[in-house]
Amino acid sequence: MKTKTALIFGYNDYALEIAKNIVNEYENINIFSLHSENDSLKNKSNFEIKSFDLSDRWDELNNDVDIENSIAFCVLEDSAENIFLTISLRSSFDDLDIIALSNNKETANKLKMAGANKVIPLVQTTAEMISEMLEKPIVKNVFHNILFESGELKIAQIKMNDHSSYIGKMISDIDWDKKYGVIPLAIVREDMSSEFIYSSKLKHDTITQDDIFIIVGYERDISEFEKLIGSRCDVNWRNWSW
């Protein structure tokens, strides 16, 4: 039986951190190591370590894994190997979501060219966090809480109900902060393009039933808002662009 699996390639601290954070979201977590014998001996985590080779054709994965609903993380420490792995996975699986880790901008570009859906630029992201700690400490704390911590403030993706009274209204007239206590930040349009809520492009646009709003609010307000206006939804970010 095919299962919804997180495939993590590379046995290192990054892999373990990722596994720890997503363990509840997937039925299976598979960590693959290039040097599985050594790594299996050292392994102190609860995750099983499988071996893989860069020349694999991944036939086994096709049998066990529900590729469309699974995700792959490429976190090999050697950039060249990581790029090769990404391109190898993409050439075998068109529908697999691939997230890859990069150390610099150049590798990030290559990983994207190799077919990664999303690249986490490690050094850049770390530096962003540090400079935000210094220059905008409040922003850093608020966003960090919204994104990563289990605080009351949440961010959600809400799709309009078909019968919502807001459909057809001007986007610029939205006053949900007063009415429902949630603040819309951005909108994902039907063509999967995103716009900041106050962007001049949207000034004269109306809300359509396929619009997805990115809103920030307290959990209870978002739940309340959901009941009245729309429902939380996933966005397939393979097709999504900002």
């Binding site: 997180a6 601290d13 990054y14 951190e17 990722i18 720890k20 954070n21 997503i22 979201e25 995700i71 993380f73 976190v75 997230i99 880790l101 999303k118 986490i120 490690l122 050094v123 992201t125 770390t126 962003e128 966090m129 935000e132 922003v139 966003f143 919204i146 994104l147 990563f148 961010i155 959600a156 993706q157 930040l185 951005a186 994902v188 995103s194 997805i212 990115i214 966005v235 970010w237 999504w240 900002w242």
Partner: peptide, 26 residues
């Protein structure tokens, strides 16, 4: 940084667009 990668991964599989919106704002 390693912990950060873990947290980002969690957000990316849960609310990818929301994450990207905040990333873009930052």
């Amino acid at each position: 940084p390693k912990g950060l990668v873990g947290m980002i991964s969690r957000e990316l599989i849960g609310k990818p667009v929301a994450f990207e919106v905040i990333h873009a704002l930052r």
